[in-house]
Design a protein around this nucleic acid. Structure first.
Length: 587
RNA sequence: GGGGACGUAGUUCAGUUGGUUAGAACGCCGGCCUGUCACGUCGGAGGUCGCGGGUUCGAGCCCCGUCGUCCCCGCCA
């Protein structure tokens, strides 16, 4: 990298990208710019594959044709940025490279500009090597050059465009809402932003634009959407980041089906954009209660069959719960070793898994019959064992079974190709419970959020039997991932006050925390509702990835750090003083 | 907060029961090479075995601690 003479860009202009040139371009002059992907120096002739995001084009440098240019090409290293001009030449039949779209031509370079040099990349840009993620994250700008990440980021951009096209087409308005907002109780932990002007006061970054979009309905904007960043200070996972992006929308005067009628074509367009088969609409709908009973989870993966519960008399075995058969199609019986491993897993979930043998012959026969199992389907029968401690014991039991089902599915998935990532099984889960019991706080908590309306017929038992109330809320689920959730909101102040009361907020609490929403509802709030889809998760699945970090250009690690910029980092004394903040302990 | 996996050259990995100077491939540097396309070929450099402590005559390997990355539970209206 020493003493290399670099050239200015000046008024140089690209005539083609590195993906443009074809046999029909032979004879033209071309000027291309890009990164030195690979250099093959044969002595008297040098070949360079020049790369940009559109493709790769071969450059040729002949010593006996253009010695000065050839000499400069000798100095080039990987990832140097150059401009090259020359005549596009058709390659002879034997030298055509069928592996790249531009493989029928090459540029015989007569002028070269070295625009920038590059250090040796910290890892190869080839896809063939699985580089560890921490190295990729530290040099993310290099990682993003790799075809795999280029493809994902490109797909994300296309999906965002498709979303905008569909929603603009349906008459939605794209409206921005504040990032510096009021902290809200309930829900996830907020990220706080201290106020410099008012010491001791804080803004919060929004967990979602929920209240603002509702107020936009009060303002008469009718159909709102936004592709918007949201912030939640909870522990990170493969499908969760501190900041993530939602496709957020809200409508006035909708029924639940109105919202579905927007999202289904939206999702169809997204699938098409991502190059996948378009799923048939309407998508399947399933009540929360059925989802729990059949799959033991509120986000069922429909690529595997449901569980089957059945009553059975088994000598000396007492349980208030039914027996549950878990069926995995077409993989035969588990080995002795697998069976023993699974029994241990079942035990951890307060389940007992029965061996298939002479004693349980009748049980397994019943299970096979009830679940409609084919001969080579694997069937595992489990039942509840041990103490039952939950405010909804049956639900807890089915959830244990569901976790066990998922474990079994994942255990055999790879070997038997059970879960095709491109087999998109969309599902609406509807009729969620309105409230969940919060053991820690010893009170009811909103299952979705406190602005969700209750089914009309459940309104009268809002305070008398909160646990039995169903909400007008819905989740969009794809292959076991929650893609988004929404609800028909409360638009009446009296109903909202009742819900706050059921949640244990006093009038004063409610006024302090959500006063502006309550007040807004008093000024002619229309019936309204909406939904938010997780863009990161949607693109993740469309890209066939199993982590949203693969579709986020600059993600954080599981511990919430950015390895590239090295944040979070300490604030200096002066900044803290200005904000009126004193640290409780020095690190 | 809890459970698990991993950490050796720039990268991906190997490293036997604890035993000589820690290896390979790719990459990198230098030489040769006029039709390569994962060019070829000859030569070379490159290591705090994550870090700290312990056991031992001797530790990449065993033990304890710690840091980092990943996965899961809790948490995520």
């Amino acid at each position: 990298m020493d003493n290399l003479q670099l050239d200015f860009l000046g008024d140089l202009k690209r005539t083609h990208t590195c993906g443009d040139l074809r046999a029909s371009d032979a004879g033209k002059r071309a000027l291309v710019m890009g990164w030195v992907h690979r250099r093959r120096d044969l002595g008297g002739v040098i070949f360079i594959h020049l790369r940009d995001r559109y493709g790769v084009t071969q450059l040729v440098f002949h010593e006996n044709v253009a010695p000065e240019v050839h000499a400069r090409a000798e100095a080039l290293g990987g990832e140097y940025v150059i401009a090259a001009e020359g005549v596009v030449e058709a390659r002879s039949a034997e030298t055509i490279n069928p592996a790249i779209p531009t493989g029928e031509v090459e540029i015989a370079v007569s002028r070269i500009w070295i625009l920038n040099e590059s250090r040796v990349p910290p890892f190869p840009l080839e896809e063939t090597v699985d580089v560890k993620e921490d190295v990729r994250l530290k040099y993310r700008y290099v990682d993003l050059r790799r075809p795999h990440m280029q493809r994902n980021i490109l797909m994300r951009s296309k999906v965002s465009l498709a979303v905008r096209e569909v929603l603009y087409g349906l008459g939605f308005l794209e409206i921005e809402t504040p990032f510096m907002t009021k902290s809200t109780p309930e829900g996830a932990r907020d990220f706080l932003v201290p106020s410099r002007v008012q010491h001791g006061m804080f803004y919060a970054l929004p967990q979602s634009p929920q209240i603002f979009k509702q107020l936009l309905m009060v303002s008469g904007f009718d159909k709102y959407f936004q592709i918007v960043r949201c912030f939640r200070d909870e522990d990170l996972r493969a499908d969760r980041q501190y900041e993530f992006t939602q496709i957020d929308l809200e409508m006035s005067f909708p029924q639940q089906e109105t919202i579905f009628g927007v999202i289904e074509p939206l999702v169809q367009k997204v699938c098409e954009t991502a190059g996948h088969p378009v799923p048939a609409a309407p998508f399947q709908r399933m009540s929360y209660a059925d989802a729990i009973r059949l799959y033991g989870i509120d986000k069922p993966d429909l690529r595997l069959p449901p569980m089957t519960s059945f009553e059975f008399e088994f000598q000396g075995f007492q349980t208030p719960m039914p027996f549950v058969a878990i069926r995995i199609p077409g993989i035969g019986k588990p080995s002795r070793k697998e069976r023993d491993e699974l029994k241990l897993i079942a035990q951890e979930k307060s389940l007992v898994m029965f061996d298939e043998g002479s004693k349980t012959e009748a049980m397994y026969a019943a299970a096979r019959e009830k679940s409609g199992a084919a001969a080579d389907d694997m069937i595992l029968v489990v039942a509840h064992t041990g103490p039952m401690r939950s405010w909804r014991p049956e639900e807890a039991f089915y959830q244990s079974c569901g976790q066990f089902r998922l474990h079994v599915g994942q255990k055999f998935a790879e070997r038997h190709k059970l879960l095709d990532p491109h087999n998109f099984k969309f599902l609406w889960v509807v009729d969620f419970p309105m409230f969940e019991w919060d053991d820690e706080e010893n009170r009811w908590a909103a299952a979705h959020h406190p602005f969700t309306s209750v089914h009309d017929e459940d309104l009268k038992r809002l305070t008398s039997d909160p646990g039995a109330c169903r909400a007008k809320s819905y989740d969009l689920v794809l292959n076991g991932t929650e893609l988004g959730s929404g609800s028909i909101r409360i638009h009446r102040k009296d109903v909202q006050a009742k819900v706050f009361a059921a949640l244990g907020f006093s009038d004063e609490d409610a006024r302090k925390k959500f006063g502006y929403l309550l007040e807004g509802l008093e000024y002619g709030a229309p019936p309204h509702g909406g939904i938010a889809l997780g863009l990161d998760r949607l693109v993740m699945i469309m890209a066939g990835e199993s982590s949203i970090r693969e579709v986020i250009p600059f993600p954080k690690t599981a511990r919430g750090t950015d390895l590239m910029s090295d944040c979070p980092s300490p604030a200096n004394e002066r900044t803290l003083r200005e904000l009126g903040i004193k640290l409780a302990s020095k690190v």
